[in-house]
Write a protein that binds this DNA or RNA. Structure first.
Lengths: 215, 215
DNA sequence: ATATAAGCGGAGCGACCACTCCGCTTCTGC
DNA sequence: GCAGAAGCGGAGTGGTCGCTCCGCTTATAT
């Protein structure tokens, strides 16, 4: 077996151009309309046939993954930027804010992050972001700004709910999420925090939740 | 024209029984699985054919309306119960809590309330609940427990986000919403409230949001 | 130039779902 | 008990969407 050395064989020039056009179209359409759009719309916009699209991306999911991977990078950048902030509370809030801003620009991003459709790219990014988020939270705990019972496992609650407001108000008041976030963040401050009626999820539970509990 | 006097003509006994069985099946199935279930599943469970179901309820939407109407009543009851509470803050929180408890029991309820699929029954209930909620909020403002910049137009944010947590965690931790609600409610207290980055929606905007901004 | 592998487009397939049509059955008033 | 209106079931229709198939076209190496 000489298997591992699999170079994918170079594409013909026209094929490569078409691939690029497909990716560009998918980027634009997914960001603007979300991942629910029919594949045909992307093929049309890219000026190629269905056959061409499916030869390059055997599955709609593959196409989504390819496109979303780039956007997910911004997620990591947001976390790094937030850690660069001097004040821990500011860092924490900037991170949340920045991530939600990314969701505004890119509808597919939210659907993939919040959705339950497995996804290699998504998992990889989550793994990279996790330690950064942990430090963000630890710093804010340490300086007494973030309520001590808030754990990294609570982070999905913030993004899920913020994203929900965003999506619902899109087209009526695209920045309503900022108001909601203001309310929630006041609840995340250490000052005036009240005991919570139940503990956080375990890491395992978070994963099961994000992967879409087995049906 | 002798129009207005339209009595709907009484059903034959067997027809009436079938109608009841359809409603019972729909109630159970919608509550457990949500409104997305195929109509056929309800027909099957009721032991009737598609023809029978559609003669009684010309549209899936009609069936949903018929079933949801009863559940919506509990919504009004929750608001009344909350007003009976002596302490305004307790009343306010009990209301939110009770509504979310209703969502746990009935998946369709959330989809209809949070969804954007018009709905006569939904609108009627909203109209009835509105003054109750206003009083609930005014009371809590007056005694200084609820932050003064929280308005009735912010209420949908609470239910939308609470419902989102509920739905996401269903099957992993059905009561996770209580933890989330604890965090949010701490943000709704007057004590320690911080200025919000943007004002509330107008009533018109709320309506447009709840009706699913024209597409 | 030409052979050939790589690439192409788009009609069509299969699965799903709301909804309809119509020949047969059953209740009910007389 | 019987006529006829009311009711019934379930195969079929039309629309959507992901994905496939295959006869034709085109880049490229010689």
């Amino acid at each position: 077996m000489t298997a591992p050395q699999t170079t994918p064989a170079p594409l013909r020039r026209d094929a490569r151009e078409n691939r690029d056009r497909i990716l560009a179209a998918a980027r634009a359409v997914f960001a603007a309309e979300g991942v629910e759009v029919p594949v045909e719309e992307i093929a049309e916009r890219a000026g190629v046939g269905m056959g061409t699209l499916y030869r390059r991306f055997p599955t709609k999911h593959d196409l989504v993954e390819a496109v979303i991977e780039e956007s997910l990078e911004a997620f990591v950048v947001a976390a790094e930027g937030a850690l660069a902030e001097d004040d821990p509370w500011t860092g924490f809030t900037r991170f949340v804010e920045r991530v939600l801003e990314l969701h505004v620009e890119n509808r597919a991003l939210r659907e993939v992050l919040a959705g339950t459709d497995q996804g290699h790219a998504r998992d990889a990014v989550r793994k990279r972001v996790r330690p950064l988020v942990r430090r963000l939270i630890e710093r804010a705990h340490a300086d007494g700004s973030l309520r001590p019972d808030f754990t990294p496992q609570d982070m999905p609650l913030v993004f899920m709910t913020g994203g929900r407001v965003l999506e619902a108000a899109r087209g009526v008041a695209p920045d309503l999420w900022r108001r909601y976030l203001g309310l929630l963040l006041d609840g995340l401050r250490a000052e005036g925090a009240t005991p919570l009626p139940r503990g956080p999820l375990t890491r395992t539970q978070v994963n099961r939740l994000l992967d879409g509990e087995r049906r």
